[in-house]
């Protein structure tokens, strides 16, 4: 684990890089507006009355916080690992006195710091237009933030683990698309997970996907309460531990395999 000063320096560096390329960030953010588009459709559909226990206010809250969750957890680490292996960019990272994971993670945090000042006002304005503010949101906020941080870790470790494929195959990016699709479509970005058919929901419960986006969002809007929140955090921790162990094991094998192209 690197020192606090080292992490702060990395963060400042990556924040600067992200600021420089903010035109690109904006385009990425446009891509992340799918929850907002889906909100428009569900709000129209809900005009005829609540659907599966979701009324207009619930839909507005669900998709606005889904937008926030989606925008705070994007991961392009498979792309970074693929590039790192292919042109040997990974080699200098390996020489530094900290795990390359910290470089990758801080690049994502720097980007997030750039995004939040744009994302948060959009959520606030959306809640105002949809007249969906409520005091209970404030009470759920700490649990939401905690859930979101763990969600970020799950998503990041899933991607890191899949990214290890880059050490053996030149097609790791193909898997990035698969994981991305699962993360988006099974995460609740298009249809809230609670509105999935029950059979699908019970299969999904055995995968990490609903714990990345849907779980924290449902905690925020009060559709998961009391003991179930703690149980959800427990399952999130379980996935972080399992995936983290898998990654650590795979990383060791991968490094033995790594032949440092371009070094």
């Amino acid at each position: 684990m690197p020192s606090f000063r080292a992490i702060r320096a990395l963060l400042a560096l990556n924040y600067g890089i992200s600021l420089q390329y903010r035109a690109q960030s904006v385009l990425w953010m446009i891509n992340g507006t799918v929850p907002l588009i889906m909100m428009l459709i569900w709000l129209q559909l809900a005009k005829g009355g609540p659907i599966g226990g979701y009324d207009a206010t619930t839909f507005a809250q669900y998709f606005l916080f889904m937008f926030l969750a989606r925008q705070s957890t994007p991961t392009w680490v498979i792309y970074l690992m693929d590039r790192g292996v292919k042109n040997g960019e990974l080699t200098p990272y390996l020489l530094r006195p900290m795990h390359p994971v910290w470089h990758y993670a801080s690049e994502h945090w720097g980007e997030l710091l750039c995004r939040l000042p744009i994302i948060l006002p959009i959520v606030a304005v959306g809640l105002t237009i949809a007249d969906a503010w409520s005091w209970s949101l404030l009470a759920h906020l700490p649990a939401f933030v905690l859930g979101l941080m763990m969600a970020w870790l799950i998503n990041f470790t899933v991607h890191m683990t899949v990214g290890l494929i880059a050490f053996w195959s030149d097609n790791a990016l193909g898997y990035d698309t698969v994981i991305y699709q699962l993360y988006i479509m099974l995460g609740g970005v298009v249809v809230p997970v609670e509105l999935f058919p029950e059979a699908v929901q019970s299969i999904l419960a055995w995968t990490p996907f609903p714990y990345v986006l849907d779980f924290p969002v449902r905690v925020m809007i009060g559709r998961i309460e009391g003991f179930d929140v703690l149980a959800g955090f427990g399952i999130q921790l379980f996935w972080i531990a399992v995936l983290g162990a898998l990654f650590t094991w795979g990383w060791r094998k991968a490094l033995r395999q790594y032949s440092a192209a371009g070094a």
């Binding site: 005829g48 097609n171 898997y175 698969v178 699709q181 479509m185 099974l186 999935f196 058919p197 699908v200």
Partner: peptide
Amino acid sequence: YRSGVFGRTLANILSTGTSVMLLWAMFRQV
């Protein structure tokens, strides 16, 4: 780089399948 083609075909089927499943889930409600 032909190793990728099979994987990508599978991914394409998976993603179209998921879209149809989500659509079906929506139409169960409305």
